[in-house]
């Protein structure tokens, strides 16, 4: 049995997920909570946001994010990849900074325009 606090809405239901019983969820106030509990127990994922170096006159850092959620267990590995990145302006938000993380579908993309 794994326990979680649901984060779908501010109510914060306390969920219990039974891995030995087909990930059955109890304690949820609604169906969205059940879906969240299952996902969280089976393969938790997160969007990762950080920043990278940029050779700009005004901005020393350019913010980035993963455009899809990645496995929670990959977060620190993904962060290490950003250490070696240095961008040059112009940067447009949506520009791919690191493509296809760990061979998957998620990319790190820029989240800000940096003109010069």
């Amino acid at each position: 049995m794994k326990e979680y606090v649901c984060i779908i809405c501010p109510r914060g239901c306390h969920l219990a997920v039974d891995e030995e019983n087909d990930y059955a969820v109890t304690g949820n106030g609604c169906l969205r909570g059940a879906a969240y509990g299952r996902e969280e127990a089976m393969h938790p994922t997160r969007i990762v946001t950080s920043s990278v170096r940029v050779r700009s006159r005004i901005h020393p850092r350019c913010p980035v994010k993963t455009d899809k959620a990645i496995a929670k267990s990959d977060i620190m590995k993904a962060m290490l990849l950003l250490d070696d990145v240095e961008l040059s302006p112009p940067v447009r938000r949506g520009d791919v900074v690191i493509a296809s993380l760990f061979g998957g579908e998620a990319n790190f993309i820029a989240t800000r325009d940096i003109d010069e």
Partner: peptide, 18 residues
């Protein structure tokens, strides 16, 4: 720079700079 902004107003999850 974290995400979670805009769900109510823009209907999608954005970072602060976005």
């Amino acid at each position: 720079i974290h995400n979670g902004f805009g769900l109510h107003y823009f209907g999608e999850e954005l970072t602060g700079p976005e």
